[in-house]
């Protein structure tokens, strides 16, 4: 809906700076996906309305974090194994890191696929 409003405003000739929007405070939702945490020896399902970071915290694992907005780099996590597509939403990783499939920022990013194993 936000995108529809923005597109419509642009077509109607409104300057971008006069169309304000904000996402909902909760993390951006997405399809649920399964993750295995290699170091902790835990498996979990990331729900539709929670972030990967929140799901990891829910299991009692205490990963590093700071901004929870994909900018500070604190929660950068190594990917040990994956079969699927990363949905990177952070401002931290370089483009090469994003396409490498070896890194993910769990505070904002998600995954769509069969297998995801993290070094956590």
């Amino acid at each position: 809906m936000i995108n529809w409003v923005r597109r419509t405003a642009t077509v109607a000739g409104w300057p971008d700076a006069h169309v304000h929007h904000e996402e909902f405070l909760a993390p951006q939702p997405g399809k649920p996906f399964a993750v295995r945490l290699a170091k902790s020896g835990l498996s979990l399902e990331v729900g539709e309305d929670e972030s990967l970071l929140e799901a990891i915290e829910r299991l009692g694992v205490d990963p590093p974090y700071l901004c929870r907005g994909g900018a500070c780099g604190q929660c950068e996590t190594d990917v040990l194994e994956s079969d699927g597509t990363f949905i990177h939403r952070d401002h931290w990783l370089e483009d090469g890191e994003k396409s490498s499939g070896k890194k993910i920022m769990p505070c904002v990013s998600r995954f769509d696929g069969k297998i995801l194993v993290l070094d956590r």
């Binding site: 904000e22 996402e23 405070l25 901004c67 907005g69 994909g70 900018a71 500070c72 401002h91 931290w92």
Partner: peptide
């Protein structure tokens, strides 16, 4: 990176 973070700060969620 800091600018991108700041641009997306929302009401009620200060940093």
């Amino acid at each position: 990176r800091a600018l991108k973070f700041l641009l997306s700060i929302q009401q009620g969620a200060p940093a």
